[in-house]
Computed example of a mutant assay.
Amino acid sequence: MIKHIVFSVFISVLLSFNQAHAARVDTVTTYSAAMKKNIKAVVVVPDNYSKDKIYPVVYLLHGAGDYYSGWIKKAPTVAITADLYQQIIVCPDGNSTSWYFDSPVNKDWKYETYVTKELIPFIDGHYQTIRDRKGRAITGLSMGGHGALYLAFKHQDLFGAAGSMSGGVDIRPFPKSWKIEQKLGSYAEYPENWEKNTVINMLHLLTPNALSLIIDCGTEDFFYKVNVNLHDKLVERNIPHDFIIRPGGHTWPYWENAVKYQMMYMSLYFNKKEN
Rank of each mutant, 00 (worst) to 15 (best):
Y265R: 11
N193F: 05
I214M: 04
I5H: 01
Q182K: 13
L230Y: 10
G65K: 15
K36R: 12
I88T: 05
G125P: 03
Y269F: 15
G140R: 13
E112D: 10
E118P: 11
V45R: 07
K272I: 02
N201G: 04
E236I: 02
P121T: 06
V226A: 05
S12T: 12
L60E: 03
R237Y: 04
Y224Q: 08
E274V: 13
W194I: 00
V259N: 11
K233V: 01
M266K: 07
N106M: 01
I2C: 11
T219M: 09
I11E: 12
L60M: 14
A41I: 05
K110W: 04
G163I: 12
S267Q: 10
V169F: 01
K233R: 14
K179S: 05
M35F: 11
F122M: 09
L15H: 05
K183C: 03
V259P: 11
P175F: 14
L211S: 10
L141V: 14
V13L: 13
I123S: 05
D242C: 00
M35I: 13
Y31C: 09
M266A: 14
Y68V: 14
D132R: 10
F7I: 12
G248V: 01
M266S: 06
L14V: 02
E112T: 14
E112Q: 11
F159M: 15
I245N: 14
L158D: 04
I244M: 11
E256Y: 02
Y49H: 03
K134M: 00
S12Y: 04
G248D: 12
G145V: 02
K73N: 15
F122G: 10
P46S: 12
L60V: 08
A22C: 04
S69G: 06
L60G: 03
R172W: 00
I120G: 00
F222D: 02
D83M: 10
A41M: 08
H4K: 12
H62L: 03
Q156K: 15
R24L: 03
Q262F: 08
M1P: 09
L14M: 09
V43D: 07
D170N: 15
T129Y: 08
S96A: 11
L158C: 10
H204L: 00
K110L: 04
F223Q: 07
L234S: 03
K176H: 11
K36V: 06
P240W: 02
K117W: 00
V6F: 13
V28F: 05
V169H: 09
D221F: 01
T113E: 11
D216F: 00
D221W: 09
W178H: 13
G145P: 08
F101S: 01
H155I: 14
V28M: 04
L61G: 05
E195F: 00
